[in-house]
Design a protein around this nucleic acid. Structure first.
Lengths: 204, 204
DNA sequence: TTAAATTTAGAACAAATGTACTAATTATTT
DNA sequence: AAATAATTAGTACATTTGTTCTAAATTTAA
């Protein structure tokens, strides 16, 4: 593995475990056993490290969403499994979510990118919900406004479940993912038709 | 107003507008036109300023929750109005929510306090939900687990709607509060009985 | 094998930060 | 009015941080 890749790996580890504000370029270099000069040869500015990691997270998420969108039929199983995959990815890059606002302030490109992404995602989610309605999975008696609000809820919980965990339960790894997967699944429950509710109960 | 109070007021302003990481004790002193030495006479450590502001927020929230708990009958109106009051309070101290994880890391007392508070609040919310069930406002066919998950959702959205706003819409003041009040109200919608849903539609 | 390019170490710099210290000023008490 | 206490300004210090610079070492190309 080349130095650049090792820097990214070490930075991710340190940011995840100690936070983005306490870790400096010197810490990363020290942990790797290289000089600060060397680190700054590969990344002129420390923020470039963070930006690169954010871009990778973003690209990985795109792949997950694309795989759901490609499906003809969307059912609860698919949703549950892609929720878990998303949470796993989030956990891998958890420092970004734990310090989202700070990073957004520090690196405007991240904020811009995320704001644009949100708008795209909202449409994608609403169209998935329409499919679920058509398949008799989602209730048909909910106003458009309520579904839109549900999308925002999903975004907020999706972006900040890690912060909530950090401030309360402090679950680690797969335990955190399992717990918040359950919460995500429960979020959908009241939106289901009675038939879909029965199905969901069985699979829990 | 004495100097200590002016420090808190100025700090709140600066933290809210520029973030907790960019603002230092020197900035606060400069904005007030006092010396750094004077500021540190009143607050030996900068973190004491943040802790004091957090304590005030926490106390104000306690009063809101207590006023809801004191009610014999809880209905949707009351919920909506205390949601709005809560959001207004959150907006006033928004820097805390925008930097919750950082502040929790920097000031362990805040984290401890918040973790304990969450546990108390969970019980309080669940008992309010029971009242709503008894009054025919909430559906009775939802599993206990789903209601517990709903409480967590409310906490996450309640703590991070400001972060979501910062990263996406960037609404200011009453516009932000109005928008996220609607989202909060919509969150409750799928949990309502058909009768309560009718009522809610009318009042929107 | 020699020349050129890349990578690395280590020192150095300027700016910023939290906070301590000293002395002066102002307010309060006796 | 004198003495004491509280408040304030201003300076100073040690530490940290991002980054730059220089020179050495290593790798690659000719």
């Amino acid at each position: 593995m080349d130095t650049k890749e090792r820097i990214l790996k070490t930075a991710l580890e340190l940011y995840n475990s100690q936070g983005v504000n306490t870790i400096t370029s010197r810490h990363i270099a020290a942990k790797m056993g290289i000089s600060p000069g060397n680190l700054h040869y590969h990344f002129k500015h420390t923020d470039e490290i963070i930006k690169t990691l954010y871009d990778r997270l973003s690209a990985d998420f795109d792949r997950i969403v694309a795989s759901v969108e490609a499906l003809e039929e969307v059912d609860l199983h698919m949703i549950r499994s892609s929720v878990t995959t998303s949470l796993e990815l989030g956990y891998k890059y958890r420092f970004i979510f734990l310090h989202f606002v700070e990073i957004g302030l520090r690196i405007p490109a991240v904020k811009k990118d995320y704001a644009a992404l949100t708008q795209r995602r909202e449409k994608e989610f609403l169209s998935v919900f329409e499919k679920l309605k058509a398949n008799g999975v989602f209730r048909a008696d909910l106003p458009e406004e309520v579904l839109k609000a549900f999308v925002t809820q999903i975004f907020i919980v999706g972006d900040f479940w890690l912060s909530n965990n950090e401030l309360t339960l402090k679950l680690k790894g797969s335990k955190a993912i399992a717990h918040y997967s359950d919460i995500f699944s429960s979020m959908f429950y009241p939106y289901l038709t009675p038939a879909a509710m029965q199905l969901a109960k069985g699979n829990q």
